Simulated assay, not measured.
Amino acid sequence: MNVGSEWRRGLVRAGPLGRRVGLRTTGGHGGAVAARLIDRPSRRLGRAAALLDQFAVRMNVGPRVPNPLAEVASELRMFLKDADGAACMHSSMPGRIIAALVSGGTPRHVLKIGQADDRPLRNEAEFLAKVSGVGLPFRVPELAYADFVGEHYAVVTHAWSHARLAGPLTRDELLGITEVLATTGADTGSVVHGDLAPWNILRTPEGIGVIDWETAMVADQPLRDLIHYLVQAGAILRWADVPTVVRELTHPRGLVSELAHRLGLARQQTSEAVGAYFASCPPVHVKHVRFFRDSVATAVGAPAQQS
């Protein structure tokens, strides 16, 4: 079977409660493996739903749907021709899809396909090309292809086998990743991942990997990734409460102060970095996330989200 033969819609991750995800897969073992590559929910309920859909995929259960990769099949045939399993889902970026390809049960490629004007996707391709030869102590997706495909722009990377969400990082792991990013940039600043959040950090047999470099940049913001990780882990995943996050952001023995010390930054620079982070945060409309972030911002003397 090739990836164009038969696709099915997920029962849960594309049903009435999962339309935002829109999971579609080919059937059998290959489809289930492909689904696991791209559908990695961070929350318990989402993980249960994903497992249910993967079981349904193996059993070839679910409504049949058109091939979601049909529009790009001819241009990307070099990757599609040997695949015998695939999965596809909506991205959080409107107008973009994410797909995974499997051959013989082995993960092969991850595809991101956006509109021609999808600047963040093009930015990711540029950064992956830049950091590929830097020798980072953590894994970064290896770029296989990046170009315009008809009316779309596509980025293809080599998939990692046996990858899973990293879960809460240890103190040393988190400081290690953020210190490397902060000291890897050019003279004009540090490498800033831009969305260094728990769902973008994976564990693989070869070590930790960091994915989704769409908002990466070189800027004089060496503490931003660490601040972002702490806030997102608390606000969205509820791994920590407000006092704990505030302590890590502001206490002399907190994570942010520790990173600042390693980088030779003054205490004033640390406070300014925390304030600048909240001042630049885009609005969020999920009530509990907004409340958490505003509570932290208020506690550290930074601006809360404006109504």
Rank of each mutant, 00 (worst) to 15 (best):
T204P: 00
I236V: 15
A219V: 03
D220K: 12
V245T: 13
P243C: 02
L230P: 03
R203H: 09
G234F: 12
T244P: 10
L226P: 01
T244C: 07
L223P: 02
Q221G: 00
H228E: 08
M217Q: 14
L230W: 11
L226E: 06
L223I: 09
D212F: 06
V210L: 04
D220C: 01
R253W: 02
M217C: 13
V246D: 10
H228W: 11
A235R: 14
P222E: 06
I236A: 04
P243Q: 03
A235C: 15
D212Q: 01
V245S: 06
G254S: 01
W213M: 07
D241V: 11
L223R: 05
A219N: 07
G207Q: 08
W213L: 08
T204W: 04
Q232G: 04
H251R: 09
L237V: 13
T250C: 12
L230E: 11
T204V: 03
W213S: 07
I208K: 00
Q221C: 11
R203N: 08
Q232W: 15
V245F: 09
T215Q: 07
W213E: 08
D225G: 01
P222M: 04
P222N: 03
W239S: 05
P252L: 06
R253K: 03
D212L: 09
H228D: 13
W239H: 11
P252H: 11
L226V: 10
L230C: 03
E248F: 06
E214Y: 08
I236G: 00
R224D: 07
R238D: 12
T244S: 15
T250E: 10
Q232P: 00
A216R: 03
W213R: 12
V242R: 12
R238H: 15
G209A: 15
V231S: 04
I208V: 14
P205N: 07
L249C: 06
V218W: 13
P243R: 06
D225E: 02
V246M: 08
L249V: 03
D225R: 02
A235W: 15
G207C: 07
V242K: 06
L226C: 02
L249T: 05
A233L: 14
P252V: 01
G254F: 01
E248L: 01
H228T: 14
R247A: 12
A240N: 04
G234A: 11
Q232C: 13
W213D: 10
G234W: 10
E214N: 08
L249H: 07
Q221S: 14
Q232L: 07
I208P: 00
V210T: 03
G234V: 10
G254Q: 01
E248Y: 02
W213G: 13
E206Q: 07
I211C: 09
V245D: 03
L223V: 01
H228L: 09
Q221E: 15
E206V: 00
P222T: 05
W213V: 09
L226I: 11
R203G: 03
I208L: 15
Q221K: 14
V242H: 11
V218K: 07
P252K: 04
E248P: 06
G207N: 06
H228V: 08
M217I: 05
P205S: 00
R253I: 01
G254P: 05
V242P: 13
